[in-house]
Structures are given as C-alpha cells and as structure tokens.
C-alpha cells in the first residue's frame, strides 16, 4: 500500500515537472518562499528520491523492473529538469552546469557503490559495444556515425565569431561633487536643505514631513489625513502637490506614472530611467545628491556614469531651482521613502 502511494506520488511529481517544462504551468505558480529556497529545494529533492525508490519497488513488484543503467540516467535527467524548470527565478546556466556535474558524480557513486550494481550499470554499455544482437549493432552504428557529426556541429557553433552586444559596466550613482552651481547660486551638498521640507511654522523639519508621506504598504497610498489634493492643504502638502504637477508635466514620460522607471518613452532608452520605488535609488541618497543629479542631468555625470548615453535632461534648462526642490519633495512623498541624511 505504502509503495503504491509512493508510486502515485512519484508519478505526480514527474507530471508537475513535465507541465512546468512545457509551460502549461507557469514557472511562477509554485513559489519557493524567499530566503528559504535552498532548504526547500533540498527537501523537495529528498522527498523525490524517497518516492522514486518506492516507485521503482512498485514497478519491480509489478514485474517490470527498470534496468539500473536507465534508473541512473533518468534520475540525472530529473535533476537537470528540476534545476531548469522548477526553480524560479531561473538560475544561470553556469551554476546549473555545476550542480549537474555534482549530480552526475553522485549518480556514478550510487551506481558503483558495490561490484554487482556496477556490473549491472555497465552491462547495457558493453552490450552496445559488443553488438551481439542486430538491434545493438544498429544502435552501435548509429552512435559511431552520429557522435562525430554532433560534436562537429557543436564545436562549429562555438567557433563562430561572437557578435553579441559588448558588456560595459556603468556606475549608477557616482560620487557627487562637493558643491554645484545652479542658476548662478552655489549649493554646497553637505549643508544645503530642501527649502520646502518644512513644518507648519516654516522651519526645516524632517520628522514632520516624514510623517506625511504615503504609507509604506502595498500600493503606497496617501494617508487619509495627508492628501495633497485637499483644498485646505497648506505648506508641505501643498508643495508636494505642486511638485507632483511638475513631475507629471516633465518627468513621468521616462520615470513613469508610478515613479518606477516605466514611463511612456522609457522603452527606447538605455540606460533605462531610474526606478524611484526601488529601495536602491532615492532611498539610499541624500536630497542634495538628487538636487545635483536633477539640475545637471545626464550630461553633467562623470565619465564612469556614461554621460554620453543618458537622456536625462539637465533640468536647470527647463525648471527653476524652486521647482526642482518641489519635484524632489514629491518623489520622496510618493514613494514613501525618507531622504538619507548626512549624519
């Protein structure tokens, strides 16, 4: 009974993997929990080994025992398919090749664990080499002819000149200058402050403004009591709205309606526009750094950040200093991030 359940379970596992590999089951449907992936994978593989053992017992009970040779080959194929199709997000080929080799060695160790098993494993290979039966003879001839041809094709492909896009490494957030001059005024990055990040008394106040930003939950929605579109909105929230207006008249074309870098023109450009909702962009930077980047644009980048390729406008050509500060205020409000401080 137990073996029967094991056998059915084994069939189910193989079926799921088959569905995954032909794409009927989307790769994302059976999610591995982030952070526990290796443990889950080992667990799943362990269960599979157990179940396959039961399955093979079931088969031999039914009188159809699978030769040791094919057991090894099939198990190895299972591991390869599992790595390619089960694991999502996909792992790169080089890593898969490494795991595949380890699995192959493991299969060999299993096959050669005792003399009898090793013999059983070798037997089909020797049969083909000896060509004792007409079938084996045909098989041997096929192998002898096909092997050199396949290897020729494979090496021909690898000798063809490679015309892929050259890889160039770009620094996304280069080191900022000590100060920047915008519209005739010099801003020292260490000491400058956003003049619109203020509390109701008109004082620079991070704590107050940070309490008004959108909620850092799914959807990043505004706090009901802090709606910039409220007619009575004053001070900080009013500036956020004004910044949003400027953003949606100028910036959303690339940085997107949700500030995620997926705007109307974004698809055409390389490097792609920054995604402000990503914790690796504005959340990691000081407000004055953003001010420098916005004012000077792509053309103002140092060489390691590829100024020649960036289509980011030098916004000092389009916006006033005040407008730039308001846009920055809006970007932090809308993404729900705090600007990083110097201390």
């Amino acid at each position: 009974m137990k073996t029967l359940i094991g056998g059915l379970l084994g069939g189910a596992i193989i079926l799921v993997l088959a569905l995954l590999s032909v794409g009927i089951l989307p790769a994302t449907s059976l999610k591995l929990v982030e952070g526990y992936m290796p443990m889950q994978m080992l667990f799943e593989l362990g269960i599979s080994v157990l179940v396959f053992a039961l399955m093979s017992r079931l088969l031999s009970m039914g009188g159809i025992s699978l030769p040791r040779f094919w057991q090894g080959i099939l198990f190895w194929a299972f591991i390869l398919l599992y790595l390619k199709f089960r694991v999502y997000p996909p792992i790169p080929f080089s890593v898969r090749a490494m795991y595949g080799t380890v699995a192959l060695i493991a299969v060999f160790m299993w096959m050669s664990s005792n003399e009898e098993d090793w013999k059983k494993f070798k037997q089909p290979i020797l049969n083909v080499l000896d060509a004792g039966t007409p079938f084996h003879k045909a098989l041997r001839t096929t192998y002898l002819i096909a092997l050199p041809i396949i290897l020729w094709g494979y090496s021909y492909n690898s000798f063809l000149p490679n015309l892929d896009e050259p890889v160039e490494l770009r620094t996304v957030h280069p080191a900022p200058p000590a100060s920047t001059k915008v519209h005739g005024k010099t801003f020292v990055l260490q000491t400058s402050q956003n003049p619109y990040r203020v509390n109701p008394e008109g004082k620079y106040d991070q704590e107050y403004t940070n309490s008004k930003i959108v909620e850092q939950a799914m959807g990043r929605l505004l706090k009901p009591e802090a709606n910039p579109w409220d007619e009575k909105a004053e001070g900080y929230l009013k500036y956020v709205r004004e910044g949003g207006e400027i953003f949606f008249q100028n910036c959303h074309f690339c940085h997107g309606d949700n500030l995620n870098g997926r705007g109307l023109h974004a698809f055409a450009f390389n490097p792609i526009p920054a995604n402000f909702t990503d914790p690796g962009t504005i959340a990691q930077l000081q407000e004055t750094f953003i001010f420098w980047r916005v004012a000077k644009g792509g053309i103002g980048l140092p060489n390691e950040a590829f100024p020649w390729a960036s289509v980011m406008p030098p916004w000092e050509q389009h916006l006033t200093t005040d407008e730039i500060w308001k846009v920055i205020l809006f970007e932090y409000w809308h993404t729900g991030y705090y600007p990083r401080t110097w201390d």
Binding site: G219, R220, L221, L222, N227, P228, F248, Q249, D257, H334
Partner: peptide, 21 residues
C-alpha cells in the same frame, strides 16, 4: 484614497481628464 495618490495627476480632480499631465 487610491485615486488621489495615483490617478489624479493625469485624470484630474473631477475626473475630466484634465490633470497636470
């Protein structure tokens, strides 16, 4: 709440398709 965070910028306060963008 969703509308005034995400949509108002294009579709406008009264939904007349006249937001800032």
């Amino acid at each position: 709440r969703v509308y005034f965070t995400k949509c108002v910028w294009c579709h406008g306060v009264d939904g007349a398709g006249d937001g800032p963008a």
